[in-house]
Design a protein around this nucleic acid. Structure first.
Length: 502
RNA sequence: AGACUCGUUGUGUAAUGGUAGCACAUCAGAUUUUGGUUCUGAUAGUUAAGGUUCAAAUCCUUACGAGUCUACCA
């Protein structure tokens, strides 16, 4: 891996940072499910920890009890485990509420933090240290209502950087926290909690997405002002990279919540989403997602990536490796006129299984065209067509809307005249299967695209399906890849794109 | 409007001031019992102008364009 993040770290090592001290962290807020964008952050952090053989924490940024809950914590842990990333320790920002509180008092005493009071639509700044501490302690134990007091850092109200305009460190939130319960009635803001948590955990490089770059000055200011040599010598460094921006799916929690609110999706396992939980359920393997993330790389540039790129990576993984089935989604029946009526010929497949060939068979509707047309290589009056694993046929006649074909001896036909091979199924020996098709939901200019796109379709499969296993991925000949999630029920993984050929 | 950040073929990403490379996409040819696959080749790029330098994608200045933020969310 060569990129700007590694360069920064290597440079720090060159300048005296001990390589043994390197430590990273993945720090989600437990307010939703992880999605494909989080894998970008996961991958870079875990990859770096692997390269440098350094420690890495999973830290839940649980500062705001209004947003978070334990359900999300458990789900995030499950998803990370499924992806195969191994961290050293699970941490919670809420573990540090005590020490953050102590540091806040220290800043008050240093006149670097002060209480602001709101009463009758008026704002009062309180600068007396004793008064500040008295109010702050009462805020903590729940003596005041929400929106009456805040604790602000005293930096520079005149700064053009908004984040340095005396940012809020604590606000009153009268809601129990799933870990600390009713112990606290004040909660630290992101800016006051995050860098300090990094400092407490001795994180050396704190990677985050680009929207936090505005916070960097503040991040550094807080750490500078609570820095204590005896406590920890290492000053963490915030490094930003651009977030994954998928143009044709959703990675924004806000948008996911809109979909749930509008009851378009029931939960975050919906196959039209790109949450990790959804991918898991659709039969994707972790390495599909990780390969995709590897390919897109890291930078600070705004990027626009199509979720198609994921399909490309998956195709590479699966192609020529999956078990195959012949499946017909929209069948039409054809009759072979020069094949005996009751004869069953057992045709050997590549995997040594056998399927029966009979006088009447089904083929895909799209593989037949009555009239000749340019660039159509499949069944019509002119083309010789190979039935996969089997005979060469050509359209003989159409009578009373019934299609009659004739088998030709393959030795008598020029090899190059056979331009296509299609799948087929005996009309007597087949199995019904169910397939779920869906597309990703996304937003375009705040409009939701691809609604109601889960389609259930019945299809016909060859009889080798009797012996296949659930929870595996199968390739449907010429259609795509599908995941068998219960007996005779498949979910789409990807469809083959058809290319035009002259 | 300001603050911060970023501009490299269509897309994504490399190039420590010294040959602008790679992947995907696209197009062509070959291969093929999947219009799939595989192989070969081609097209195409440093936002612009100026400066520093023997030498600039890289450093500096200006312009232009894009993004993020301007919350008691993270």
């Amino acid at each position: 891996m060569k990129n700007f993040i590694k360069k920064i770290i290597d440079n720090d090592i060159k300048n005296g940072l001990s390589i043994n001290k390197l430590k990273f962290r993945f720090s989600p807020e437990p307010n939703g499910f992880l999605h494909i964008g989080h894998i970008k952050s996961l991958y870079i952090n875990f990859k770096l920890s692997k390269i440098y053989n350094s420690k890495i924490n999973l830290r839940f940024d649980d500062t705001n009890p209004n947003n978070i809950n334990k359900y999300y914590v458990n789900n995030i842990i499950k998803d990370i485990k499924w992806l195969g990333f191994k961290y050293n320790k699970i941490c919670y920002t809420s573990n540090y509420f005590n020490i953050l509180y102590k540091w806040a008092i220290k800043l008050i005493k240093l006149k670097k933090a002060y209480i602001q009071k709101f009463k009758n639509n008026k704002i009062y700044n309180i600068y007396n240290i004793k008064k500040n501490i008295y109010i702050f302690k009462n805020m903590k134990i729940g003596k005041y209502n929400e929106n009456t007091y805040v604790l602000r850092a005293k930096i520079n109200m005149k700064s053009k950087n908004f984040y340095l305009n005396d940012p809020i460190m604590y606000r009153i939130i009268k809601k129990p926290h799933f870990r600390t319960n009713n112990k606290w009635y004040i909660y630290p803001t992101y800016d006051w909690a995050h860098g300090q948590s990094d400092y407490i955990e001795k994180i050396t490089h704190s990677l985050c997405s680009i929207e936090f770059q505005n916070h960097k000055l503040l991040y550094n200011w807080f750490i500078k002002n609570i820095y204590n040599k005896k406590f920890n010598k290492i000053i963490p460094k915030q490094i930003e990279f651009s977030r994954l921006n998928i143009i044709d799916s959703i990675t924004s929690k806000r948008k996911l919540k809109i979909l749930k609110k509008k009851k378009i999706i029931k939960n975050y396992y919906d196959p039209r989403l790109c949450t990790i939980s959804s991918f898991k359920k659709k039969g994707y393997k972790p390495n599909f997602l990780i390969n995709f993330i590897k390919k897109i790389g890291y930078s600070k540039r705004e990027n626009n990536i199509s979720i198609n790129k994921l399909d490309i990576e998956i195709k590479k993984k699966l192609i020529n490796k999956s078990n195959k089935l012949m499946v017909i989604i929209n069948p039409i029946k054809i009759t072979i006129i020069n094949y005996p009526k009751n004869k069953i010929k057992w045709i050997k497949l590549n995997n040594n299984k056998k399927i029966p060939f009979t006088k009447k068979i089904y083929i895909e509707k799209k593989d037949f065209k009555k009239n000749k047309s340019k660039n159509f290589f499949r069944l019509n009056k002119i083309n010789y067509v190979r039935l996969k694993y089997s005979f060469i046929i050509k359209l003989y006649k159409i009578k009373k809307k019934k299609i009659y074909c004739k088998i030709y001896n393959k030795n008598k036909i020029n090899k190059y005249k056979i331009k296509s091979t299609i799948q087929w199924i005996s009309n007597k020996y087949f199995k019904y299967i169910n397939i779920l098709f869906y597309k990703y939901i996304y937003f375009k200019k705040n409009k939701i695209i691809n609604l109601n796109t889960i389609k259930k379709k019945k299809a016909l499969s060859d009889i080798t399906i009797n012996n296949i296993k659930n929870n595996k991925i199968y390739q449907f000949h010429r259609i795509g890849f599908f995941y068998l999630y219960k007996k005779n029920f498949f979910k789409k993984i990807l469809l083959f794109k058809k290319k035009k050929k002259k």
